[in-house]
């Protein structure tokens, strides 16, 4: 599969969502979502559990079909009706549930659907490429010839991330990529996000870890109950972000912070 790897002028709009909505029966998971991603930009997508972040990612990955709205990739309106279509358009995804085949080994999972030489798979070349990718991520994987079932949660996450990089995507979406990762591996993923940005690709990062988000994000898009709830930057104060995420300045997070502060004052 060939991809247009022409680097974009930084700032060029590569992904544009307008009024995207998604219903699951009676549940409105997304409503009127607008989102822009530019070349060379890291957009963080934050929100509480069930805010609709993963649903939005799945819509962009071609896993779910949006109920309403338009999606434009590089200025052209597109219908992402299958995951294959999204991959072809250069949108790669690390899913929250990773979506790996446990019965296949690491190499097979990395190249799934995109094997080198479909009629006579080149296992040696695939294995070499697998090791190279994994080393870039500082992965600690004992063997790429073991089935995924024998890997730890973090190792699996690394494999899923490596797979998303395989096709040199234009846009890479990471749904809580560092949730299970160790300190060094998290740092490597953040480095990697910066490298991908430097190459002029767009990144959508979902994370509940505000520290990670602030470290790499150019813009922070907040979703709340399936709707846009403001766009912020890394400079935005913690309070303000939490307020946008939870929908009020008076909430459990701020109350807890205040209590901590009181205890410190008293002690």
């Amino acid at each position: 599969m060939e991809h247009a790897t022409a680097t974009h002028a930084p700032g060029e709009l590569i992904l544009r969502l307008r009024g995207v909505g998604k219903n699951f029966g009676a549940v409105t998971a997304l409503k009127d979502i607008d989102l822009d991603v530019h070349a060379g930009e890291v957009v963080a997508l934050v929100g509480d559990n069930g805010a609709g972040k993963s649903t939005l990612v799945k819509v962009l990955a071609g896993v779910h079909q949006p109920t309403t709205g338009t999606i434009e990739v590089q200025g052209k309106p597109v219908t992402l009706d299958t995951p294959g279509k999204a991959l072809e358009l250069g949108i790669a995804t690390v899913f929250q549930d990773l979506a790996l085949c446990e019965n296949l080994d690491v190499v097979a999972n990395l190249f799934l659907g995109h094997e080198i030489c479909p009629w006579r798979m080149d296992e040696v070349q695939m294995e070499v490429r697998a090791w190279t990718l994994l080393q870039e991520l500082a992965a600690r994987i004992p063997s790429v010839r073991e089935p995924i079932a024998s890997l730890s949660g973090g190792q699996r996450q690394t494999v899923a991330i490596a797979r998303s990089l395989l096709l040199e995507p234009q846009i890479i979406m990471l749904d809580e990529p560092t949730a299970a990762l160790g300190v060094a591996q998290t740092a490597e993923v953040l480095n990697l996000i910066e490298r991908v940005r430097a190459r002029g690709h767009g990144v959508i990062l979902i994370s509940h870890n505000m520290e990670d988000v602030r470290a790499v994000a150019d813009r922070i898009v907040v979703l709340r109950l399936g709707r846009n709830n403001g766009v912020y930057t890394a400079e935005t104060s913690h309070q303000e972000l939490v307020a946008a995420i939870t929908g009020a300045s008076e909430n459990s997070v701020s109350r807890r912070a205040a209590r901590k502060l009181e205890e410190v004052d008293q002690g």
Partner: peptide, 12 residues
């Protein structure tokens, strides 16, 4: 092994 994972890898 995992039909949904296969689908998301672009397999028909």
């Amino acid at each position: 092994g995992n039909a949904e994972a296969a689908r998301r890898s672009g397999i028909n």
